[in-house]
Write a protein that binds this DNA or RNA. Sequence first.
DNA 1: AAAAACAACGCAAACGTTTGATTAATTTCG
DNA 2: CGAAATTAATCAAACGTTTGCGTTGTTTTT
Lengths: 338, 338
Amino acid sequence: MQSKPTTIKEIARLLNISPSSVSRGLHDHPSIGAVTREKIKQLAKSLNYEPNNAAILFQKGKTYTIGVILPELSEHFFSTAISAIEDEALKKNYTVIFAQSHDDYDQEVKLVDKMKNQRVDGLLVSISKDTSKFDHFEKLNSFNIPVVFFDRIPPFKNVHYVACSLESATVKAINYLLKKGHRSIGMINGPATLFASEERKDGYMQAITFNRLKFDPSLIVNCDLTEKGTIEAANQFLNHKRKPTAIVTFNDYVALFLIKHFKQLNVINDFDVVSYANLPIISYLDHSPVASVEQYPYLQGQKAANILLDLISSPNLQNQAFYNTIVESDLVVNDEKY
Amino acid sequence: MQSKPTTIKEIARLLNISPSSVSRGLHDHPSIGAVTREKIKQLAKSLNYEPNNAAILFQKGKTYTIGVILPELSEHFFSTAISAIEDEALKKNYTVIFAQSHDDYDQEVKLVDKMKNQRVDGLLVSISKDTSKFDHFEKLNSFNIPVVFFDRIPPFKNVHYVACSLESATVKAINYLLKKGHRSIGMINGPATLFASEERKDGYMQAITFNRLKFDPSLIVNCDLTEKGTIEAANQFLNHKRKPTAIVTFNDYVALFLIKHFKQLNVINDFDVVSYANLPIISYLDHSPVASVEQYPYLQGQKAANILLDLISSPNLQNQAFYNTIVESDLVVNDEKY
DNA sequence: AAAAACAACGCAAACGTTTGATTAATTTCG
DNA sequence: CGAAATTAATCAAACGTTTGCGTTGTTTTT
C-alpha cells in the first residue's frame, strides 16, 4: 500500500543492467537483445511498473496536454464543443485540461497565464464577453504555444480560428422568411458592442438589400438578453407601425422569453420565430421556432482540436499562415437542413 | 520568439550566484538577504521568468491535478457538476483534467489507467452505465491516489462517495402527489438492472405503504428510456384498470416523450407529471411537469471536489473511514422547494 | 588473417527545481 | 576578546527518464 511505485532504476538494479537498457527494452529499441527485452518486460509487469509521466514530460519538454479556456462549461454549446475536443485529443493520446473564464476578462488573463505555466502544448480559447484586449495571448508566442480560437474569436485575421459565419446563416434565415411570404421581419439582437450582434445585423441587411427591399433600421432592436430586456424589445414590435410577422432572436433564451411573453398576450400565433440554436430541446415547445440556425458545436470543437494538434506536431507551420476556418452553419427547419 | 524560456539556472548565472539561492529568493526563504532577494526578483521579472511546472511537479512528486472521469460531458448534469469541480479546484490552485467514458466499461478502464499514469493527485468518478466490476479502481490504491465517486456510484459503502438519495426524493414526490389527491400513481421507471431504478421503486413503495395504501406492482413499468419505449409504457397506463391520474417519469427525457405523446392523444390534461430534473428548460413547456426532483449537480460536484481535496491534503485519512455523503434532493414545485 | 560491420549493452549527462547539509562571514554576548 | 549565535549564501544530491556516444565482444566480409 504505502510502497513507492516501481521505477526503471529499480528494475535495472534487480536485473543487474543499466537503467538505459531498461528504458530501451521497454520501448523495443533495436539495440536491446530479445532475451533481455523479455526479461525486462516480464519483471516490469510483475512489479506493476508504470512509467512516471511527470518525469517523462519534464524530460521531453512536452506535456502532451492541451488547454481549453472557455466562458462557461455548463452552457450546452461549450460542453458539447469540449466533448468533441476531448474525443479528438484522446485519439492522438493527448490530455485535456480546462478552465472557465466565467466571462470575466481578468480571470481569462490569469488562466492564460496558468496554462502557460502548466506548459500546455497548445491552447484552445473561446474568449470571454468582455475581452477587448488581446495581449495576454501574445506571451504564449514566446513560449511557442500555439493558440486556436473557436466560436468566440478575436476581431482580426492573423490568428488561427474556427468559427461560424453567423452572417451567412442570418442571410439564409431571412431569405427563408421572405420566401415564406413575410415582408416585415423584426430582429431582437444582442448588445451592439458584440461582434456577434454585428454579424447578425450585417446578414439581415445583406439579405434585405439583395432582395431589393427597403431596410428599416427600427426593425432591429438591441437587447441585453435578459427576460426583461426581451419583453421590452418585443413590445416595441407590437406597437410598430409596420408590425413584423416574423422575428429573429439572438439566441434560444431570447426566443424562450419572447414566446412565453407572446403566449401570455395571446399573440403568439401572429408570429414566426427564428432563433440561433443553443438549447437542444427547444423544438419540444408548443410554439417553438419555425427554424433555427445550427452552429455545430461538436464540429467546431473537432476542427479546432485537429488544427491545434496539427500546429503542435509541425511547429514550423505556426506563424507562416493562419488557419481561418469557417464552419458553415445551417438553417434547420423541421430537422432538415435548408 | 524561438528563444528558450528563462530558467533559474540562467538567472543564477547572470547574477553570479547559485541556482539554489535563486530558488530560495523567489520563495522568500529567510536565508536569502533582502538585497539579493530583490535583485533576483527584478531580474526574474525583466527576463519574464516563469517557473517550469513540469520540473516542479516532477521534483515534488505531486501534480496538483485532479482527474475527472464521467460518462458524457455534454449532458447537462455532468457539465454543471464538472463546472463546480473546476471552480473548487481553482480555489485551491489545482488543475482539472477530464475524460469521458461514453458509458463504455472498457473505455473507463483505460481512462483510469491513463489518469494513474498522469499521476493525478486524486480522481473523481461517475461510473459508466455498464460498469459492474470495480477492480480497475483498486490499482489506484497502491499509488495512493484517492477516489471519490459522485452521482453514479458503486453499490457498496467502503468507498468515498457523494450522491443523491433518489429514494427519499421519490418518497417526497409520491407524498406530494398523494396530498394533491391522486390515488393511482404510475411510474415509468428505467431498466430494472439499474441501481437508480431500484431506488425509485423503493421510494415509491415506501411512500405507498407508509400511507397505508395498497401497492399495485403493475403501476410501475420498466422502460428502456427511448421514445418508443416511453410510448409503450404510457399506453399501458391508458389501458390500465386503475388508470393513474399522475405519472412519475425516470427523467426529463422520458417526461418529454410522454408529454408529447399525451398531447397528440389529447389526454395530457388528465395527468400530472413529476420528473427528475436534468433539462433546465423543461419548465418552459406548455404542459410541463408539475414538480421535479432537483439533484443539485453543482452542489454534488462541489462537495465531491472538496472531499477529494481533503483526502489529498491529509493522506493518512484515506483508508480510515469513508465519506458517504448524501445530498438531499428536493422536490421543486413552481421554483419552490417542497 | 586483418579489417570492417554489427549486436548488445553501459556511461554519463541532461531536463529545471528543490532541499538538507555545509561553509563562510558577520554579529552578539558574557 | 574569544566563543557562540546569527546571517547569507553555496554544495551536491535527488526526482525518473531519455539519448548521444562509447565500449565491448562477436560475426561477417575481402
